[in-house]
């Protein structure tokens, strides 16, 4: 597993980051070391082992279909860096 600049740039895109050059080369080297270590997992034969995404086997936690009053809009928008009276504001998404 080699973390080259192309892969690093791809991970940056996926992560929605724009790393300064210094950080980028540093994280590249870190990822290289960490992932090389993680490759250790290949030593274990896991054929037929079901992946476990929760620590327990519980199933079926449901909420009944009841509509309750929502939050007052001012609370929803309270932390927004940019907002109008009724919505969050983003720079325009369509050219």
């Amino acid at each position: 597993m080699t973390i080259d600049n192309k892969l690093l740039g791809y991970l940056e895109d996926l992560s929605c980051l724009a790393l300064p050059d210094g950080e980028k080369s540093r994280l590249g080297a870190d990822l290289q070391e960490i992932l090389s270590y993680m490759a250790k997992l290949a030593e274990i034969d896991t054929t037929g082992v079901a992946a476990r995404s929760h620590p327990f086997d519980n199933v079926n936690a449901f909420r009944e279909d009841e509509a309750l009053p929502s939050y007052e809009r001012g609370r929803i928008l309270a932390n927004a860096p940019a907002k109008s009276g009724e919505a969050f504001i983003a720079p325009k998404t369509v050219e």
């Binding site: 997992l41 290949a42 274990i44 896991t46 082992v49 079901a50 992946a51 476990r52």
Partner: peptide
């Protein structure tokens, strides 16, 4: 793979 190791 990590999820499988987690199961083990």
């Amino acid at each position: 793979k990590a999820l499988q190791i987690r199961a083990l």
